[in-house]
Structure formats: C-alpha cells, structure tokens
C-alpha cells in the first residue's frame, strides 16, 4: 500500500467517524445520568479543564467514569453520572462548561416526580432539581393531576444560561411515562 492510498483511507475513516444526528426523542438518557450536548468538544486534552470543573460538582457519582464525567468527542457530548440522592445544580453545570472554554448547546435529563396541573401549566415536583420545574411539550395533556411520572426532558442553551437559584426552570418534555 503506498503512502497516498494510506492517507486517503485515513482521511475517509476520520470523516466517517461523525455520528448521525439524533432528535431529542431518539436520544435515551440512562437512569442516573445527564447528557450535555456541547459545541466544539472534539478533543479531550483541550477539554481537560471542562472535565476538571465538572468533576468538582458535588452531585456527581465519582465512582463512575473515573470522575463522574465521560466525554464523547465523536458525538460532542458529556455524560454526567449522578449521585443517587443529591439534587443537581443546572447552573453549576453551565458555568463549569463555559469556564472550561466551551459552549453548552443542550442538556438532557431524566426526572421522576409528581405533576401538578395549575391552569394550563404543568409543574413537576422532584427532589432531583434544586429549582421548581415547569414542563412544556406534547403528551402532558394526557397526564392526570397529581400523577407520578418519569419524564425525559431537555433545556437549550438559552434556558440553561438563564437558570437562577429559586426561580422556576422550564423544560421541554421529550418523553413522558406514567402508570395510567
């Protein structure tokens, strides 16, 4: 095999490594994890500071992935392993990534709790998030009041950047599961 052919093969291989894009509904967040889509995370050495910042967050299960943080440079994603009982700090995640030199694009999470219907609003009471959670999106109208649900939801960069302590957080529901 000559050098030119080898270089072409390597270039083609590198170009085909990129993953096919998933819709929020197609992405499945495993229980006990949060997935953050981050622009530009294509080199783990370059993103070491982001990983270091995230690993300091107290609500992570540091026994997983070495430090609770798994970077996937091919999918531009960071997966966080969550400690079972600690509420997660969305603003802390956002700031850790921004100070690490990258831009969070979307955060996907799975939450369990009780949905309360307030007029046309759906409020999720959950111990997993420090802020009150308001859900929007399709499928919620089927959920009875005071229903225990398991939802997968996401926030985009704008919503994530505006998260404030004590202020409600609006999340878009991707999937909702409930017994009834």
């Amino acid at each position: 095999m000559n050098w030119r052919r080898l270089l072409v093969l390597m270039a083609v291989g590198a170009a085909t490594v990129a993953h096919a894009e998933e819709t929020p509904q197609q992405l499945i967040v495993p229980p006990g994890q949060v997935i953050v889509q981050v622009k530009g995370v294509v080199c783990s050495f370059c993103a070491y500071g982001t990983e270091k910042n995230l690993a300091k967050l107290t609500f992570l299960d540091h026994s997983q992935f070495g430090d609770g943080v798994l970077m996937d440079i091919y999918a531009n994603r960071i997966t966080l392993a969550l400690a079972p009982d600690a509420p997660l700090d969305l603003r802390g995640i956002y700031q850790a990534i921004k100070k690490g030199g990258y831009d969070p694009q979307m955060i996907y999470l799975r939450l369990s709790g009780t949905v309360t219907r307030q007029a046309d609003r759906y409020v999720l009471r959950t111990a997993k998030v420090r802020q009150p959670v308001e859900l929007i999106g399709q499928g919620l109208e089927q959920v009875p009041d005071q229903q225990v649900v398991d939802v997968q939801a996401h926030l985009d960069a704008t919503q994530l950047s505006s998260v404030q302590e004590g202020q409600p957080v609006t999340m878009v529901v991707d999937t909702v599961e409930h017994p009834s």
Binding site: C43, F45, C46, Y48, G49, T50, K52, N53, K99, G100, G101
Partner: peptide, 17 residues
C-alpha cells in the same frame, strides 16, 4: 506524554488553566 506549540495552542483554554 505530550508537548509543543500547536497542541499547547489548544490547551489550556479554560479560565485559570
């Protein structure tokens, strides 16, 4: 291990790095 300018070019990009 590692080193040199071009790769050092990409890191540390984080505040206080």
């Amino acid at each position: 291990a590692w080193a040199h300018q071009p790769v050092m070019d990409m890191a540390p990009r984080w505040e206080g790095g």
